[in-house]
Design a protein around this nucleic acid. Structure first.
Lengths: 194, 194
DNA sequence: CTCCAACTGGAACAATCGTTTCAATTTAAG
DNA sequence: CTTAAATTGAAACGATTGTTCCAGTTGGAG
């Protein structure tokens, strides 16, 4: 047999996520990847085929982590209204700690590529649908327990909550301060409350 | 004296806006500009200095048009709640007619560049502030007439409305259908209603 | 020790990037 | 008609793009 793989593909992918997340697909050059991943140009190409493939794998990894966390939160939620609040609190905390103004990798990709790259656009759409579905389940529970507003369907409320999450992440990318993000979250939360 | 300017700089800028809006700064090449503007490479450079300057002028033109329209709507508003509804209706109409999935030039730029180009980031921040201010005035009027909720300050509500406008434009860029956009707008409107 | 694959370093690829330059042409004003 | 500025076409710039290739080196399994 032969030599073992020296680098941890998974850790490498994390670095790629970081780069693409911060500077986007077009903004990240092959040289940026060589510098940022810390492995040789050749190794990048024979491990990940090409830049676009690496980008797709990075986005996929990010989305699995993100949707995974969301599904976990929803599954464990015994107090849906409190869970919604926690989701926003976590988001705001992340955002104000995000000094590099990365925002959300999925939102950034949606804006940069979804319009002219069908395959990547579909990844974004599928992710959005997963999150919307998870939020719908969460809000349904809250409606059944009388905690949340029943003036709209759970799905409608889920789309609204998802929209406000998106908006907060866009605002974070422009460096909006905590107060602005808090305002958005507060009104959004009260809108879905009974 | 000498020859007159042959092309209409303003009409040319509109074409540049269109290009940058659709494909972003990094996604639009000098060649795209030559093809899209329909004038010579040399003419582009001696009229607009360089690509980045042309981009800034394009963004500036877009923002003047956008903020101008918003200020006009707010100034003429005698029924603030109805005006908010009209803003969302117009937005949704624009979005579903936006078959090229352009979204909003300002939002796209915020996501692509605001994080790593300070000067352009400031243009985005200033624009956002103008829109927020205009919306604040509008919502104040509605609060005074008892039409709109006074559970939050007008500025807080304005930030919330602005956030939902942003979210709708991001969603539009991924090709979201009218129903999804409508859901967001409806809950947002009811959230600011008394 | 040998073998073979993983990996490295670096050169090189053609293509495209943004930009500059220049001679030729067009057009309006004097 | 002359003059001068506006505009064009095309070539060329060096830099960087994404990608490939290959000759070495490394290191674990047989």
């Amino acid at each position: 047999m032969a030599r073992k793989k020296e680098f941890d593909e998974d850790a490498l992918l994390d670095k790629a996520v970081e780069l693409f997340w911060r500077k986007g697909y077009n903004g990240t050059s092959a040289q940026d990847l060589v510098d940022g991943l810390g492995i040789n140009r050749s190794s990048i190409y024979n491990t990940y085929t090409d830049k676009r493939t690496l980008f797709k794998k990075s986005l996929e990894k990010y989305q699995k982590a993100q949707t995974g966390a969301m599904l976990k939160v929803v599954a464990q939620a015994d107090d849906p209204k409190q869970t919604v609040k926690q989701i926003f609190n976590g988001l705001i905390k992340e955002s104000i700690e995000d000094t590099l103004l990365k925002g959300c990798f999925m939102v950034n990709t949606a804006v940069e590529l979804a319009g002219h790259d069908k395959e990547i656009g579909d990844m974004v759409i599928n992710n959005n649908q997963s999150v919307e579905d998870a939020l719908t389940k969460l809000l349904e529970k809250g409606q059944q327990s009388g905690q949340l507003s029943t003036k709209s369907t759970a799905r409608t409320l889920a789309r609204f909550i998802f929209a406000n999450i998106t908006a907060i992440r866009v605002a974070a990318r422009t460096g909006a301060d905590e107060k602005k993000l808090r305002d958005i979250a507060d009104v959004a939360i009260s809108a879905v409350s009974g």
